[in-house]
Design a protein around this nucleic acid. Structure first.
Length: 570
RNA sequence: UACCCCGUGGUGUAAUCGGUAGCACAGCAGGUUUUGGUCCUGUUGGUUCCUGGUUCGAGUCCAGGCGGGGUAACCA
């Protein structure tokens, strides 16, 4: 699946259990599933769940289904079904079967009648408020519904009438008859069916009663023969109910195992909050490159392989943890370093004039496409007497640890020539308008025949040949590492006003042919993604995926870490 | 103030049947380098939440604390 380091699955409590189940013979073949509700887009948290369920199945020679948990037509939409399928495939996983909870509605209903007949479920006439009010609290028991003792025969009639559409929305519900005083609130006669006269994207108008999550999920798992039903920690309290339904029905009971959901610094995975960002236009949609959605990460340029490697690395445990954002970046850089071709681009241009360059002359220099992958070949880049260099690659009065261009200093222009700074031009206000230098014709390609060394190599783009292009520089959407901890009222105050900065860059001409979906490293700056939405033929738009590590800045402290000011450097 | 779950270096995560803490990232130092990237080498960090107990031996088992998270939708 991935070539990233330590992609081998670590031993964890879930795999340990599966191994034991296989060994004891309790389980013959592993069957897992990823059960999203098609009511929104998948995000990085889902990537962990997807990676887990699909990987586990694969590792143990089992199967993994993609099942749409479409039990609530009020919130779901076919558009999301397609998006989910697309995102799962993008991550690199292929399901053994594509299934829908709605396809089991007949079976689930039949089981409901069975429970009614067994006296384990009843129709309640109370409304939602009354049911909530009589549920009790975590410290006080609930009270029985006045309709709790209806006979099985009466309940059966009522349930059938519910199904037949004899009642309006909310008029009646079917409830499991368990224990209104149970310490686990989920077992205080949970609602199984509610009435919703609604069109379902899959079953049309066949049903007007729809099963609740608890009264569908375990049943679906059972029907599919799921051996290990993996889900996140918040469903832990639901497991007793999951078990109760299967046991009461006398059907095959899969084992639900819960693990901690993924948390990453600066990222939010709450659907509600994400929706707030989109609806408030704080981002440009669900696929905004600052969003932690899979679609957003895709547009940001994150390779799916990097995401999967990250998800495998973080492991699975029950401890509620938060991963450093830097770990995610590590996997992105690790993959991109090996696969992204190099190009040169100047994002904060400063003119460099080569005084001894033959007027009007252009020379082509050969540049490596990827030093990490010789097979990527080389390309020709035009070099001339006026070049763009990065503004912060020149300093008139450099500190001792600054290796780049400065008056009197010689540096290498990558794949080009050695140049020596002879002076600067300034405007009336004293701002530097251009840097002047001379070049050494003998150093073409970047090496001096006499063996002399330079301490710095800089990127450049020929002014006459430069491609002007829009480059979008992204940074964290939030200024705090844990935006989820900020309450709803102040949530927007921690939005990073500099999370998106758009600049016009001077790019080497070959980038004119960049296609949407391609990834590059703009040397010495960062990795960039050619946007598949906004790029036009010949007019590419680039998104900064992640910066390169910067050893120089690191030495100077992290003061500018979250507030990039230079062209593309942090 | 009920019930459930969890607690290992800065962040995560490992440690066969209880045998004396490993790995990754980050950090630091050095080397290599036509990217201050990559790569290579070395290295700093842990009384395994606390207190007792069982044991020849406890991160692993037991008890009691402390701390964190979760749960009261006709959502999933």
């Amino acid at each position: 699946m991935t070539n990233a380091p330590d992609s081998a699955p670590a031993s964890d409590f879930i795999r340990d259990r599966i191994r034991a189940d296989l060994q004891s013979g309790k389980v013959q073949a592993v069957q897992t599933r990823f059960p999203p509700e098609p009511n929104g887009y998948l995000h990085i948290g889902h990537a962990k769940a997807i990676t887990l369920s699909f990987s586990v199945a694969k590792e143990f020679g089992g199967r993994c289904n993609l099942r749409m948990d479409d039990t609530n037509p009020a919130k779901e939409d076919q558009e999301y079904v397609e998006a989910i399928k697309d995102d799962v495939r993008w991550l690199g996983f292929e399901w053994d079967a594509l299934l829908y909870a709605a396809d089991y509605f007949d079976q689930i209903y039949a089981w409901a009648e069975l429970l009614v007949e067994k006296g384990l479920a009843y129709v309640d006439d109370q409304n939602a408020e009354q049911i909530a009010a009589t549920r009790g609290t975590v410290t006080t028991p609930g009270t029985n519904s006045p309709f709790r003792n209806r006979t099985p025969a009466e309940n059966l009639l009522l349930l059938r009438a519910m199904k037949a559409g004899s009642y309006g929305d909310g008029e009646k519900v079917l409830r499991a008859k368990i224990d209104m005083a149970h310490a686990n609130l989920n077992l205080r006669d949970p609602v199984m069916y509610r009435i919703r006269h609604m069109h379902h994207q899959r079953t049309g108008d066949k049903w007007c009663i729809y099963p609740m999550y608890d009264w569908a999920h375990g049943q679906c798992d059972s029907i599919e023969g799921i051996t290990h039903s993996l889900c996140t920690l918040e469903f832990e309290h639901h497991r007793p109910l999951y078990d109760w339904f299967c046991d009461s029905l006398g059907i095959y009971k899969p084992q639900q195992i819960e693990f901690a959901r993924l948390n990453v610094e600066y990222l939010l995975t709450s659907k509600r909050r994400l929706l707030q960002l989109v609806e408030g236009s704080h981002v440009k949609g669900w696929d905004d490159p600052r969003m932690p959605t899979l679609r957003g990460l895709r547009r940001r340029g994150f390779p799916p392989e990097a995401l999967v490697a990250f998800c495998k690395h973080v492991g699975v445990a029950k401890f509620n943890s938060t991963h450093e954002y830097g770990l995610l970046e590590f996997y992105v850089r690790d993959h991109l370093n090996k696969h992204a071709q190099r190009r040169m681009a100047v994002l904060d241009p400063l003119k460099l004039v080569i005084e001894n360059w033959p007027a009007g002359h252009t020379e082509l220099v050969e540049a490596q496409n990827n030093p990490e992958d010789p097979a990527a070949g080389t390309r020709l880049v035009p070099f001339s007497g006026e070049l763009w260099i990065e503004r912060d690659d020149f300093l008139e009065n450099p500190p001792k640890d600054f290796f780049r261009l400065a008056p009197g200093r010689e540096v290498r222009l990558r794949s080009g020539f050695f140049v020596t700074c002879t002076g600067v031009d300034k405007d009336a206000a004293g701002n530097i308008t251009a840097v002047r230098c001379t070049y050494d014709p003998a150093t073409k390609g970047g090496n001096a025949p006499d063996g002399r060394k330079v301490k710095a190599t800089m990127h450049w783009v020929s002014c006459a040949h430069a491609l002007d292009a829009e480059v979008r520089l992204y940074d964290h959407l939030f200024t705090v590492t844990d935006p989820a901890s900020i309450d709803a009222d102040n949530f927007l105050t921690v939005l990073n006003p500099n999370s998106l900065r758009i600049v016009r860059g001077k790019l080497e001409p070959s980038l004119k042919d960049a296609k949407g979906g391609e990834r590059f490293q703009f040397e010495r700056l960062a990795y960039f993604y050619c946007d598949h939405q906004d790029s036009q033929p010949g007019v590419p738009v680039f998104h900064r995926t992640v910066t390169l590590k910067d050893g120089y800045k690191a030495q100077k402290g992290a003061a500018t870490k979250d507030q990039p000011k230079g062209g593309g450097k942090k």
